[in-house]
């Protein structure tokens, strides 16, 4: 265990991130106080990008776990494995981060089952410790350790919501799609298209976001805009690129597709 190098989890290249308001200061303050953070916002609006950006800025390693339904408590904490000599304990990502001092980022936490989520409780309050019951060890969190979860309120359904007892252990930060101008400049930087095209792509994204609740669960994300921009920068026709990157992924509804192709025609001349 002693040869474990937590620094492999550091982010080498600075991830591109456009500041929207004072979120960098807020996050830095939370980190310094070692307060757990919950970032909320729709798909693809830059939550993960922001956390990576902050890890790089603070020069701390970050361990990301993408949560899914099948994830169990042992997947986070660690487990005994049988080997030829008997058994061997292997730390899970949460234990690794707590032991060695990293930011542990649980992405899309609502996807995990609620019984799994409770294991993080002891790490998120004043105790800052993690009980490895199977191993009989109490891990005291490293002073650099911080827990961050991301959470997409768009999914809110009876089945997939965080318990109050979990929610109330975190400080919250709201994220949304950047305003049109900023979002366009992000698209320009990420994909290399010109501002004119980027502005129109953003307009199209806004059109899809207006349809949320009318047949669409979520509008086109900034990430998809970047895909579309990248395709256009590579020489793909504007309308084809929009169809491929913005419309096709978000809906199977033939009527919405007709509408959106009308919208594409209206926005691009």
């Amino acid at each position: 265990m002693s040869d474990f190098d937590i620094n492999q989890f550091k982010i080498k290249l600075e991830p591109l991130y456009e500041t929207q308001s004072n979120e960098v200061e807020l996050y830095t303050a939370a980190y310094n106080a070692k307060l757990p953070v919950m970032v909320k916002g729709p798909t693809g609006c830059g939550k993960s990008r922001f956390i990576e950006h902050m890890a790089h800025k603070l020069d701390k390693p970050i361990i990301t776990v993408s949560c899914n339904e099948d994830i169990t408590a042992s997947d986070l904490i660690g487990r005994f494995l049988l080997d030829t000599n008997g058994t061997r304990w292997v730390d899970g990502p949460l234990t690794l981060a707590a032991r060695h001092g990293a930011i542990c980022y649980l992405d899309e936490i609502v996807e995990a089952r609620q019984d799994t989520m409770v294991v993080i409780h002891s790490l998120t309050d004043h105790r800052r410790e993690l009980m490895l019951d199977k191993k009989g060890e109490l891990v005291k969190a490293h002073s650099d350790f911080q827990l961050v979860i991301s959470y997409n309120p768009g999914y809110q359904s009876l089945m997939k919501d965080l318990k109050q007892s979990t929610k109330q252990r975190f400080t919250g930060m709201d994220f949304d799609y950047a305003n049109a101008e900023l979002e366009a400049s992000i698209v320009v930087k990420e994909s290399g298209v010109d501002t004119n095209i980027a502005t129109k792509l953003v307009k199209l994204a806004h059109a899809t976001r207006n349809l949320v609740g009318h047949g669409l669960d979520e509008g086109a994300s900034t990430r998809l805009l970047n895909y579309a921009g990248t395709l256009i920068a590579l020489g793909v026709g504007v309308k084809d690129a929009c169809n491929m990157a913005l419309i096709c992924p978000i809906t199977d509804d033939a009527e919405i597709r007709t509408t959106m192709s009308g919208a594409i025609d209206a926005i691009f001349d």
Binding site: A207, L211, H214, E255, T258, T259, A263
Partner: peptide
């Protein structure tokens, strides 16, 4: 036959 498309169209572009 196209009412829904048109409806979504006005919502998408002008809310």
């Amino acid at each position: 036959d196209v009412e829904r498309e048109i409806n979504l169209f006005q919502r998408a572009l002008w809310k």
